[in-house]
Structures are given as structure tokens and as C-alpha cells.
Design a protein around this nucleic acid. Structure first.
Lengths: 112, 112
DNA sequence: TTCCTTTGCTACATTTATCGTAGCAATACG
DNA sequence: CGTATTGCTACGATAAATGTAGCAAAGGAA
């Protein structure tokens, strides 16, 4: 019931050095990855609720990102269903929290 | 000598709400976007040096990201050539700095 | 001038990623 | 049984990224 691309054979894509920061930047630089983490900050969401939160992004990509982020240890699938951040994932999101304030100021400057 | 896609007609892609944070997450969630900002942190780089720093990514995408990040006001093309962060871009990078430490710890936990 | 190098940037064909719609199996309720 | 959820997948169409090659402009030498 799973495809679950082999994380050993799958190349890192865009980061041939293997340096952790590059691997991370590459992983987070995929479509919807940052957004997914962002949407899970407040509370766990079911796959379908997450899809709604992400502007009805196609389930194909969402599922792909979900699998990747799960393999990375940032999110997990709860027992009663629904995706949530792991402690590690929560740490990661803390790093991006200031981004919100930045985005607001940035938007202001653009329309200045 | 430029194409410079019209930033008024181009849709936001993946963020139909228009909320600044979503626009930002979408912009940064494109291939090589985060990496480019990261590589420019230390010092300005020429387009070719940047390409080398980014594992020889294709100049097509790099040029696309460069244009987008420039329109966003995060980077700029210096007079004597070479791309560098704007003050705003530097602020943005400050947000991602802690990511480096996180990446190291993350890599450690993965191979635990 | 001519030659050589480097700059930012582009063309084009191929490959990969994502989209959008539909639907599956499993589970749970009635 | 039906009906509604859950996570997840198939598949054809479209958009994005790759890899190789090359352009025009600018700056040195000679």
C-alpha cells in the first residue's frame, strides 16, 4: 500500500555535497514544503484539511511532500489520523516564526 | 536585453489568498531560491560564481530565481557586476541563520 | 584595430515535477 | 446494508527545471 521512495537510492536533488544545510534547504525548497509546515504549526490536520489549507493543492504533490517531511522526521501521522509536527518539526517551525513579521513588513515596503 | 516578466500579470502561484506570508513561502519554496540567498550571505557573487556555488544548477532557473528575488527586493545586481543581498535581503537571511545549527543537529538525529 | 576573456543572460530540446480530476481500500458509524 | 470519513494512488495534461550551447556587451591587453 505504499511506494515510499527508497531514501537510500533517491539522490538529494540540488545538493550533491550532502552538507546538512544544503539537504535541508533543498528539502524545504520544494513546492508546498514550507507551506505544509506552516499550516501544521497551530494544530494537526487531516490530509484533506491540510489540502484545503494549502489552496487545494493537488494531492499528488502533497502526498509526496508529506512522505518526504515524514522521512525527515518533521511531521508524523497520528494514530487517530491527521498529520502533526514532531518535536523536531516544531523546533524547525520556531526558526520560521519570525518570517511572518518579516513578510508583513516586506509587503508594506513593496507597496510603498 | 531583458524579459523581466510583468509582475502585475504574473499570478502568485500556490497562494491565491495573497497573504504576505503565503506569497513569501511560495517565493522561497521555488527551486534554488533558498539556496541562492544562502550562498549570497557571505559576499556578492557573479552569476557564474553563483552557479558554481549552487552545484552547477542550470542557468535558466537560476536566472528566473534571480529575477524573482530581485523583483522582491531581496537581491540586486551591483554596478560592477555580481549579485548581492539588499539590506532587506540581509534581514531575511538573518531569519534563516539559525537553520544552519538546526540542520547539523537534524543530520545527527537522522543517523542516530 | 583585433584577439581574448568575462560579464549577464537566452534558446532549445529533453526530462522531471506538479496539476487536476477521479477513484481506490480501509475504517467507522448508522 | 449504505454512507461517510480516513490516507493515499492512477493517469493524462500542463508547467517547471535540466543540460548544453551560445549570444551581445564590456573590458583588457596586443
Amino acid at each position: 500500500m505504499a511506494k515510499q521512495a527508497d531514501s537510500k537510492t533517491r539522490s538529494v536533488r540540488g545538493s550533491r555535497t550532502g552538507r546538512p544545510i544544503m539537504v535541508l534547504l533543498d528539502l524545504l525548497g520544494r513546492r508546498w514544503a514550507l507551506r505544509i509546515l506552516w499550516e501544521l504549526q497551530d494544530a494537526p490536520l487531516t490530509s484533506r484539511a491540510l489540502r484545503s489549507a494549502c489552496d487545494e493543492a493537488s494531492p499528488t504533490v502533497l502526498q509526496a511532500r508529506l512522505t518526504e517531511l515524514r522521512e525527515a522526521g518533521f511531521i508524523e501521522l497520528g494514530e487517530g489520523g491527521g498529520y502533526g509536527l514532531t518535536p523536531l518539526g516544531r523546533e524547525l517551525c520556531q526558526t520560521f516564526m519570525p518570517l511572518h513579521r518579516f513578510a508583513e513588513r516586506w509587503h508594506g515596503k513593496k507597496n510603498a
